[in-house]
Design a binder for these strands. Sequence first.
RNA 1: GGCCCCGUCGUCUAGCCAGGUCUAGGACACAGGCCUUUCACGCCUGCAACACGGGUUCGAAUCCCGUCGGGGUCACCA
Length: 520
Amino acid sequence: MVRTRFAPSPTGYLHIGGVRTALFNWLFTRRHGGQFLLRIDDTDQQRNVEAALAPILHGFRWLGLDWDEGPEVGGPHAPYYQSQRLGRYHDAVRKLLAAGAAYRDFATTEEIAAEREAAEREKRPFIYSRKWMAESDADAKRFEAQGRQGVVRLKMPRSGTLVIPDLVRGDVAFEWSREQDHVVQRADGTCLYHLASVVDDFDFEISHVIRAEEHLSNTPRQIFIAQSLGFPLPEYAHLPYVAEPGSKNKLSKRKLDKYLKNADFAKVNAHGQAIAQALGLPITAETFNPVIVDFYEQVGYLSDAILNYLLLLGWSLDDKTEYLSRDEMIANFSLERVNKAPASFDPKKLSAFQDHYMQQVPLKQKVALVLPYLQRAGYVPKPTPCDVGPQLTRLVEAAGDRIKVAGDILSYADFFTDDEALTYDEATFDKRLRAAGATDLLWKYRQGLADVEPFEPASLEEYTKRFAAAENIQLNDIIHALRAALTGKGVGLGLFDTLAILGRERSVRRIELALERART
RNA sequence: GGCCCCGUCGUCUAGCCAGGUCUAGGACACAGGCCUUUCACGCCUGCAACACGGGUUCGAAUCCCGUCGGGGUCACCA
């Protein structure tokens, strides 16, 4: 039975690299009909675990990565919080001690540091001398009498080779003699991550440990702990980490300033920030940026696009498949096809996947996706007035694939504002409406609008073409001025759609307002 | 620095294990063009890579050795 886990620390946000790791675990599990669990690594956490965990669980739910056991859903091995499993870890420490696989050590931090420095000076690898190792209770009493505090260290083998079979990397060899006597229990009695992780993986019957490669060098000590405790070893698969945009360094939430110097990253970020601002979200750069999953949800990305992009960051099906549905992902995922080299996170390519998936969304669904943004930004009241639905549907249809993320609807919010409140792009207004003859043409055009029947794109186009012919001008000569008058912008929807959506009365009104404005 | 991992277009990658079909394929990005009422979409074209050096072989992106380069990790963090 395949059982995998993802073990987030309650940090308050879900990192995009973490999601990639979680996704591979989830996919592998679903592929093999097993269980995927969430374990909370809060061994050194403060008080607000629940609050710091909420956004992470929310992110998983939004992405559709469901877990079979863990927080909120429970399970036969509960609790799934490390902070609530301390007794298990203490049992393990006792067993390790009894088996001679660990010892109580009374060295001070300074003494260890001195040994390390000496080793560095002599250019030899540091290995603890075990000078303050208590081999008996009497030793321990003697050290304690000196006022020393004891920790528990692993008594690592000092010879031999360990070969770790890794499902992604093949066999990886380590020399035991290079491994440190790591601390597994602190002086205050609390236990450390490696011990806790091994114990939990055993308790939760984890069959495959699929994690990022920064854990590869931690694996020998974990194997030592597991073997000393008599636990069967899980299979290991160490995934390449997700790298920064345009570099091979590990992606980190702390280096945001640096990423913002990357043009693509900055562009995606700025786009999202603008939407967030329009929504009045209480955001800071630390909590809202393209490294954090919540960013994408708030801005209105599709979770399918995120997942598909992340899947291809380190995995591929063949030489051409780009788009995979969830079922296809599950049916085809395999650890054998995971790449060994790190892959750079490219927000531009993610956007490309988003474009693609957004184009697949049926109109009705797209309207539903987009409506909350207009409401939250205050353009449409809640509950939705009944005339908004049809108008919004027409708008979304006319906008077509200009709406790349749900939040993009805000670019068209002017359709929902009072005509008097319309804002104008000055450069466009000057160019199109203060040009010679522009106002005369518009004035005449407006006159004719009264007789267009029906007030729909086709007949509007016909009228406009007739108008241009009669005036002996190019269609362009009237269209650009009209768009500027109706929307205040130089770019936007098709002009005849714009007219139809606004309706006769508001179109006329906006033309009049623009004419008036052009005179001043 | 020690240990470990990795190295195909700017980026994600296919090909590598089982050498020839690879004058290295696809995608994103970029450039040019077409379409067109702007923008976006779409379509077409183009640019662009086997880190380097040896070896093995009739033949190497693929196998071997070395070099260089990049990264991860070396906590009483997770």
